[in-house]
Amino acid sequence: MKTRTQGDTLIITDFTELNTTNATWLQDLVRQSLAHTHKVVELDMSKVKFLDSNGISALISIHKAMCKRSGKIRLLGPTPAVFQILQLLSLNEVFEIINP
């Protein structure tokens, strides 16, 4: 996983799965990288082929943290498999989803 900042957005890229093995890692990474200026955490989901309930838990945890600072989480270009899961769990309305 890589992070970079663009304006008020913390962008996380370069991961292909979000599951039990890296969910906690993602949460730690966001916690450590988040500056006061960040209002948005944007995850590049375009290469993510697998998202399980632990990955979902991490996304919700970040979403809640961002809401507290009047910010938000944004998922960029989720693959069809991932989008289907978000839809199934009615989370496509909770997270901002951008399809390029």
Partner: peptide
């Protein structure tokens, strides 16, 4: 049942 939006757990069985 699907847990509330804020809940970070309880989606495995639902899936």
């Amino acid at each position: 049942e699907l847990p509330s939006i804020d809940s970070e757990k309880g989606r495995g069985l639902f899936l």
